[in-house]
């Protein structure tokens, strides 16, 4: 399908950050529930944007709207626009599968397919191109190295992926997402079911990955956001309470709700 021309924004000079994703007046209802109200956001390129907020605040719904993985939910109703590189993702003529190759996603629980480790890494690209065996192996190696899994699995690439530990599985899932060569990676609480060591490994990986990718990272763990976030978006009850550079919000947020949440992890909005 023909993609809409993506006009480079020539006004981006010097320190001004290019915005990869802009969200304008975005609203979501699922059946009668108003999940997201009037979201206005912009996501800068090659940075880690953390979305924090209490559970049920609509964080997941928001990032799941960006790659339209929410489409399958019955009773979903949206208004407003999400613009990715000049393309309005909810337009009728958008090729959703193509969009998702550019905006990858890692889910809360690692989900590996009942196949080998290598096949799992290549899962997203096996249908797209005719690659030789060697090329496939090279791609698998490259991405497993990126997620620092290569040393652990290089001698058993043909073992079932299910035999890995949860932390390894989640890193495998990230490698699988990277193999599709997305521009943006959405991560929906990727470490919430993992042990602290794996969590740290993934956090360190994120900081490395932001050189080449734009990362949107949903977490309910404030400490985690503190460790990795360049930008912070605080969502509560379907509304964006505050957004901006993480350093500023963590050190001197002026919003009383944000302050309360960062202090007590509790929000009564």
């Amino acid at each position: 399908m023909e993609q809409k021309a993506i006009k480079p924004n020539l006004s981006v000079v010097g320190k001004t950050l290019k915005e990869v994703i802009q969200i304008k007046n975005f609203q979501v209802w699922i059946k009668e529930n108003h999940i997201l109200a009037n979201i206005q956001l912009s996501i800068p390129k090659n940075e880690i944007t953390c979305i924090i907020g209490p559970s049920g605040s609509g964080k997941s719904t928001l990032i799941r709207s960006i790659n339209r993985i929410n489409d399958g939910i019955s009773g979903l109703n949206i208004q407003g626009e999400i613009i990715f590189n000049g393309l309005s993702v909810n337009d009728k003529d958008v090729d959703v599968a193509q969009l998702r190759t550019q905006i990858g996603m890692v889910f809360q629980k690692p989900c590996v397919f009942p196949k080998s480790i290598k096949e799992n890494v290549l899962f997203g690209i096996q249908h797209l191109k005719n690659l030789s065996k060697l090329e496939k192996l090279q791609i698998a190696e490259e991405h497993l190295k990126t997620v620092s899994l290569w040393k652990e699995v290089s001698h058993r690439l043909n073992d079932k992926a299910i035999s890995l530990s949860l932390g390894q599985q989640q890193r495998l899932c990230i490698a699988r997402t990277l193999a599709v060569k997305p521009e943006v990676i959405l991560l929906d609480e990727p470490t919430s079911s993992l042990d602290p060591v794996s969590t740290r490994a993934i956090e360190e990986m994120m900081v490395k990955l932001k050189e080449n990718y734009t990362i949107i990272f949903v977490t309910h763990n404030i400490q985690q956001a503190k460790r990795i976030a360049d930008n912070l978006i605080f969502i509560c009850d379907g509304k964006v309470i505050e957004q901006g550079p993480a350093s500023r919000i963590f050190s001197c947020s002026t919003n009383p709700q944000t302050k309360a949440y960062l202090r007590d992890e509790y929000c009564d909005c």
Binding site: A97, G104, F107, C111
Partner: peptide
């Protein structure tokens, strides 16, 4: 089959029939 399999594979850019 858990929904997460459908979502994971769709998120990798697979079409519905794929």
């Amino acid at each position: 089959i858990p929904t997460v399999y459908r979502e994971t594979s769709s998120a990798l850019g697979l079409n519905k029939w794929q």
